[in-house]
């Protein structure tokens, strides 16, 4: 006959087994995640590590850790690439593109999200085509148009070029998000004496903050890291973006690791700092709308 004590001990054994199984599963999952993170961080780690090595160390042991944090490479890179100027250029261009894309994208998306007819559907399809078109396809037409308009080698030109390329993405982002905003909010605003512009500015625009943060991150990454358009449209050294400054300082005839790695670190650093500062906001935007 099974006693109450027996049942309790059987229950405890089963509870313990379940607990151990959950622990093993948790360790395996965490191990896998750490492994994937390590794979992703390895190139970054290698880049930072190499940037602190002397040329002799690099030649003798390309995979080893630096013996000391040698800053001479950074001094050379900073001196040759006009770092501060190029970072300011990149920042200025990136922020300008984000402002234009966010404003124009939201304003374009608002009617597209609210007016459901054949014309709006066609416009959304054209935007989708813009998203699907590779950047290389548009390089030549943009160059020719900008040359004819006298926009080559100008901040306005590069900002317009990037804005036109990223606008379809913004419209796509915003159209879906605005469509999910209850129409009653707009109706309430109209009853409160708002015209179309006021509805957009006072009601719709503030609600776009989370998705704007996410969109801004995407646009920032794309614009900051873009190489081809600044290379094509900018020739004045004072207007170079960081990526072009890195490229120019490294040169295209040979690769000097003591110049390449610190320049690459310096080129990525502002972006990493920005991401670290705005991380929480960006992630909350990426998750916005996932749950009610």
């Amino acid at each position: 006959m099974t006693t109450a004590t027996d049942i309790r001990s059987i229950d405890r054994v089963e509870v313990d087994r379940g607990h151990i199984a959950r622990r093993i599963k948790s360790v395996l999952v965490h191990g896998l995640v750490l492994f994937l993170v390590a794979i992703m961080l390895l190139p970054l780690f290698y880049m930072v590590m190499m940037s602190f090595k002397t040329s002799t160390e690099i030649a003798q042991d390309p995979l080893g850790l630096p013996s000391s944090l040698y800053l001479g490479n950074y001094m050379n890179a900073l001196a040759s690439m006009g770092y501060v100027r190029s970072v300011l250029n990149s920042l200025g261009i990136t922020i300008s593109v984000i402002v234009v894309v966010v404003l124009a994208g939201a304003m374009a998306a608002y009617p597209l999200a609210r007016i459901q007819n054949r014309i709006s559907r066609i416009i959304v399809m054209i935007m989708a085509l813009g998203l699907a078109t590779p950047n290389f396809v548009t390089i030549t037409p943009i160059y020719v148009i900008f040359r004819d308009l006298g926009l080559l080698d100008s901040y306005v030109g590069i900002v317009l070029a990037f804005a036109s390329l990223k606008l379809p993405l913004a419209v796509f982002f915003y159209t879906g998000f605005i469509a999910a905003i209850p129409i009653e909010l707009e109706e309430a605003a109209r009853l409160e004496n708002c015209n179309n512009w006021q509805v957009f500015w006072h009601v719709i625009r503030p609600l776009l903050a989370p998705v704007t943060a996410t969109l801004s991150l995407f646009v920032m990454l794309m614009v900051w890291n873009d190489f081809t358009y600044p290379l094509l449209l900018l020739t004045d050294k004072d207007k170079f973006t960081v990526m072009i400054a890195v490229y120019r300082s490294v040169g295209n005839t040979g690769i000097d690791p003591t110049m390449l790695f610190p320049a690459a670190v310096l080129g990525s650093l502002p972006l990493l700092i920005l991401f670290a500062v705005f991380q929480r906001r960006i992630m909350s935007g990426a998750m916005a709308g996932a749950v009610k």
């Binding site: 009653e184 909010l185 009601v203």
Partner: peptide, 8 residues
């Protein structure tokens, strides 16, 4: 409104 329609 049924859904209140308060500006969040």
């Amino acid at each position: 409104f049924q859904t209140y329609a308060l500006f969040p």
